[in-house]
Write a protein that binds this DNA or RNA. Sequence first.
DNA 1: TGGCCGAACCTGGTG
DNA 2: GGTTCGGCCA
Length: 753
Amino acid sequence: MKYQLVKQQPAELPDFLQNLNPEQRKAASTTDGPLLIIAGAGSGKTRVVTFRIAYLLEKGVAPYTILALTFTNKAAQEMKERISAMVGGNTAGKVWAGTFHSIFARILRSEAEHLGYSSSFSIYDSDDSLSVIRSVMNTLGISQQQVPPQGVRSRISGAKNQMIGWQRYAAEAANILEKQTGQIYQEYEKRLRTNNSMDFDDLLLNMIVLLNNFPDILKKYQERFVYIHVDEYQDTNRAQYVAVKLLASGHHNLCVVGDDAQSIYKWRGADIRNILDFQKDYADASIVRLEQNYRSTKTILSAADSVISNNRKQLAKKLWTDNPEGSKITILPARDDREEADMILSSVRSEMNDNFLTAKDFAILYRTNAQSQALEDALRRANIPYTIVGGMSFYKRKEVKDTIAYLRLLVNPSDSESVLRVVNEPPRGLGQTSIQHIKTYADERNITIFEAFEQGQLIGSIQKRAGQAAENFTELVKRFREVKDSLPPAELAVRFVEATGLLKMFKDENTEESLDRWNNVQRLLSNIVEMETREENATLETFLQQIALVSDTDDTDMTQNKIALMTMHAAKGLEFPVVFIAGMEQGLFPMGRAENNPEEHEEERRLFYVGITRARTKLYLSHAERRFKFGELTYAQPSKFIGEISDHLIEYKTGNSPYQKPTPVKQHVVRQQEVKVTRTPFFDDIPQEESYSQIPPEPLTNLRVGLKVRHAQFGVGTIQALTGEGAKAQALVYFATVGKKHLMLQYAKLQPV
DNA sequence: TGGCCGAACCTGGTG
DNA sequence: GGTTCGGCCA
């Protein structure tokens, strides 16, 4: 069988393709024409795509004619690194590999004039969009109580992802809410235009407008991108689908990779039909199925399979593995979120000791970011290193956003959002009233806010002092705009931010919080310095574009020896030896609102499938009888998803918690399955501190499992386990030279390295 | 104008 | 539990 396949393939296939299995090899070497790779979880998808690109490069294809689109920066990063490792950084660096948003932003940046933007357009993130929407609603006199701005934003974004403009949206509006949304949508678009700004959705939409309206440009990019790859194709939305189709209709060499079972982004417009209908769209498409899983044990894979088989819509495929049976899936039933965290930690501890694992071998996954709190507390108390992927983003902090807004002012004078954001930060004596008058003044004369500020003293409706303050502000910005191109970006940014008084304000306030903010601003500024050393022709514009498109999911360093905490969404594409999925409860996972909606319910199930298949050797599922939500104690039943896993794959860890069952809480307000009480009664009843912790105390040394240490005789090794106390304390250390050694700490004198 | 306080929202996930 | 917004007062 193997022989025959080798014979079928032309002999000139490079050696490195021999490292792939027959299907993988077929996928990597089928370079011409449309190709659909259905890649099950853990089937070596990224490997195949990178091998394919390496193969193309090997064949002499020019790197800058290869386009690879991903959804996350992380995926793009990984792809670039792997290609680099195979063909060298020089060639790899020229491949167009990046997220849809970043690649399109790059193209739009250079073609901006065609669309009536300047190339220094700002990119608004969802918070920026939201504040524009709020401001629009104020102008239109639409109450934010009656019409939640968040909902407006998601409806507008949804429309944009379906490529529905405000005209059509307004025309098709079926109820008052949609009519109002249409109104806001129209004004919102106008604002972004005059601000010379695009939101995330515009990056996709404007790309399509560009390709549709300018045949020359379409031709240019169709010719440039000879080989196009799209990762996670099941997650593409309408706009992405159309853009890809336009680009690929030149050379028809479109390779899409995806797994319908891992489609978890319907809520942001992903259309699963894009992958289901690929063969209809591209009649001559080849299809390759990657069904061998190299990641997980048979147990984990069967569990994933038994869960996903409850979904109806699926592409035919059957994952299998040669990996061992592995141990059963362990359920951790906890009384509350705190005990859940402790049970997870004690499992971490015993896995570390029994199987010589270190922190980086573990991931704790959850449905909502809010769940990280209890887990973090426990990890901190136990002194176990951890890292949070995603969550409250550094770039979403107020002080960081303010700094970014200041920097945007230097490059994009039309960006009124940014002007208004920082004009009184630090306080410059320009309150809401004055600003409202200046806005009116600007509207009447059809000038930008910034221009109105420049004429501050001429504005009759505001006080002299406010007018002066407005002018001073513009002077400050203009002073730095003038020197913008003669200073290196980092120096420009540092001096400008210094001059704004933002840093001084935080210093003067001198509270823990304000110093923290000061630090964050410094951290952002040092990012510019870093970029400057990394890229030769770095400008403030490129910096702003880069940070507009990064999320915190991306810049977490997963190589550090830390336990990773993240949502299951953020975990897609990753794998860990041991995975915990926390919060397996009805109403939390699956989420409450998915309960009565079959489609959403199936999406939740696919998310669970993604979560399960992150695990290589061991999976734990935990649930709590009650947990804090919005500062309130809520009760829930274990998730029905647990019941979808075949019984023989599961074992229960019995609740052997030494702490006493708390006295029943008084005054329940019962609604369906949930019981809510206020926080106080429950916590007053039980001792606050570690009395019920199952975690053994930390050894009193600076040594930790996972730590690299030097031994006089054996050299450098890694601590696999620590046992005993005082004079009996022992470490199990793995040395590259001599293998595992049990060492008495009082004699061995291990030095951390 | 700006600071303080309570109310109301939030948390469903990403670029 | 945190954050943001709006109202009230100095």
